[in-house]
Amino acid sequence: MDLTLKIWRQPSTDEKGKFVDYQVQDISADASFLEMLDVLNEQLVVNDEDPVAFDHDCREGICGACSLYINGRPHGPDKGITTCQMHMRRFKDGETIVIEPWRAKPFPVIKDLMVDRTAFDEIIRAGGYISVGTGGMPDANAIPIPKRDADIAMDAASCIGCGACVAACKNASAMLFVAAKVSQFAMLPQGKVEARERVQNMVSKMDELGFGNCSNTYACEAECPKEISVSHIARMNREFFSSKLISEKEK
């Protein structure tokens, strides 16, 4: 199939960017979207042009590196998958595809379609862990966990940190990402110990980094490649609310 690609090109964070049109020919319908971009890049290198920079790694939908905003949707038109899992048979011959980077203040563009998502790491560092050291742990079966709770924790934990929720949200809010981590630990007895500090610290870090506020449009859930439910956001709100009510005033 032949395609026209309208791609955002930006040499670096501080320089201005613009859309550039490219043509690619004879793309196999069985190729993945990123393989189609590989073809384009190979073509660009041969023609002495600068190849398009984009993040990618595992190409099987789990590392969370790929991050393209395709025709107005993060990770393209299909539900529940990442860009690397989308195949070209999803597009029509002759179609024009607009490819943009994730847009959010805390995700500055590094180059072209590559953005800096270290804001997510900073949020995790603010409390997305259980403070246990290595070794000396009780037996793994010492505390039974109801299967349903463990399953909900797993649903939340399946977040790949790609940032599609932020990209999809009209407010560039990171609530689904933060809620997924808060919710995972809230469902597990091991996570309860630090639950109050965790939710407060992670939320305040999220705000500080400049992510927008949640307005419950649920675009995040609709575009999440792991289909993480907004019920986790509600759980986080609940955890936050009760932690604020219960915890002692900070000195």
Partner: peptide
């Protein structure tokens, strides 16, 4: 306040408008 912060959270807008399968008016509160 929430709205202003939300606008500030995305200084560069998308070329293609975001598409969501959900309640249309949720975007226009």
């Amino acid at each position: 306040i929430i709205q202003i912060q939300n606008w500030l959270a995305r200084p560069v807008r998308y070329n293609r408008k975001g598409y969501s399968e959900l309640s249309y008016f949720s975007k226009f509160m």
